[in-house]
Amino acid sequence: MIEARRAGPADATELMRLRKVMLDSMRDRPSPDGEWQDVGRAILQRQLADPAGTLAAFVVDRPEASGLAACVVGAVDQRLPNPSDPTGLRGYVYSVATDPAYRRRGYSRACMTALIAWYAHRGIRAVDLRASRDGEPLYASLGFRRTDDPAMRLIVSPPA
């Protein structure tokens, strides 16, 4: 059985490396390196230092080397409640990534299963994510379903 462990601040660099692996797998060309990685590392180091916080990451270590083979990062979002969601608490999965050398071994499943258990322990009833074509079978096997809600996005420009 594959064991996923809860990530800590020391895992931030590897978590950002795997986030780039995930982003690159969904695009035609690699994501550029840059300040976004440093900002992400700082956010992860700060938020993963608080075990009672609203962000968690679960990882599988590389079996024969240092570093991570796979990870998932998720957070709790407080929204306004409604009749079907009386607490307004939602989970959101930000990153699910497996290093290409370690794919098809169940590592992402182990990480996702640990994150879902973390959400359940916190009383989260709904968890959202955006699925790539490659990831959708895994998420469907864990109980995720496509929603009818249309997604829209606005990119806000900074004031001039």
Rank of each mutant, 00 (worst) to 15 (best):
residue 1 M to E: 01
residue 2 I to K: 01
residue 5 R to H: 06
residue 5 R to L: 10
residue 5 R to C: 07
residue 5 R to Q: 04
residue 7 A to P: 03
residue 8 G to F: 12
residue 9 P to V: 05
residue 10 A to M: 10
residue 11 D to M: 06
residue 11 D to V: 13
residue 12 A to K: 01
residue 12 A to S: 07
residue 13 T to I: 14
residue 14 E to N: 04
residue 16 M to V: 02
residue 18 L to G: 07
residue 19 R to D: 02
residue 19 R to C: 04
residue 21 V to A: 05
residue 22 M to E: 00
residue 25 S to I: 03
residue 27 R to G: 02
residue 27 R to C: 04
residue 27 R to E: 07
residue 28 D to I: 10
residue 29 R to K: 02
residue 31 S to N: 04
residue 32 P to T: 07
residue 32 P to R: 11
residue 33 D to E: 08
residue 34 G to H: 12
residue 34 G to I: 08
residue 36 W to Q: 05
residue 38 D to N: 15
residue 40 G to V: 12
residue 41 R to G: 05
residue 41 R to K: 15
residue 42 A to P: 14
residue 43 I to W: 13
residue 44 L to C: 10
residue 47 Q to K: 14
residue 49 A to R: 11
residue 50 D to L: 05
residue 52 A to D: 10
residue 52 A to M: 12
residue 54 T to W: 15
residue 56 A to R: 11
residue 59 V to D: 00
residue 59 V to F: 13
residue 61 D to L: 06
residue 61 D to E: 05
residue 61 D to M: 01
residue 62 R to G: 01
residue 63 P to Y: 13
residue 63 P to V: 10
residue 68 L to S: 07
residue 69 A to L: 00
residue 71 C to H: 14
residue 71 C to I: 07
residue 72 V to T: 11
residue 74 G to Q: 07
residue 74 G to K: 08
residue 77 D to C: 09
residue 79 R to M: 13
residue 80 L to D: 08
residue 81 P to I: 11
residue 82 N to D: 10
residue 83 P to N: 05
residue 84 S to Y: 15
residue 85 D to P: 15
residue 86 P to I: 14
residue 87 T to W: 14
residue 87 T to I: 13
residue 88 G to C: 13
residue 89 L to D: 07
residue 89 L to Y: 15
residue 90 R to G: 01
residue 90 R to I: 06
residue 92 Y to R: 07
residue 93 V to W: 11
residue 93 V to K: 02
residue 94 Y to D: 00
residue 94 Y to K: 13
residue 97 A to D: 00
residue 97 A to Y: 10
residue 98 T to M: 11
residue 99 D to S: 03
residue 100 P to Q: 03
residue 103 R to Y: 12
residue 106 G to Q: 03
residue 107 Y to P: 00
residue 107 Y to L: 00
residue 107 Y to G: 00
residue 109 R to F: 02
residue 111 C to D: 00
residue 112 M to G: 03
residue 113 T to E: 05
residue 115 L to R: 05
residue 116 I to W: 12
residue 118 W to P: 00
residue 119 Y to M: 07
residue 120 A to L: 14
residue 121 H to Y: 13
residue 121 H to K: 12
residue 123 G to V: 10
residue 124 I to G: 03
residue 124 I to V: 08
residue 126 A to H: 15
residue 126 A to S: 08
residue 128 D to S: 08
residue 131 A to S: 06
residue 131 A to Y: 12
residue 131 A to E: 03
residue 132 S to I: 02
residue 132 S to H: 13
residue 133 R to C: 14
residue 135 G to N: 00
residue 143 G to L: 09
residue 144 F to H: 09
residue 145 R to F: 04
residue 146 R to I: 06
residue 148 D to H: 11
residue 153 R to Q: 11
residue 154 L to G: 03
residue 154 L to D: 04
residue 155 I to G: 00
residue 156 V to D: 05
residue 159 P to L: 09
residue 159 P to G: 02
residue 159 P to F: 13
residue 160 A to Y: 09
residue 160 A to K: 06
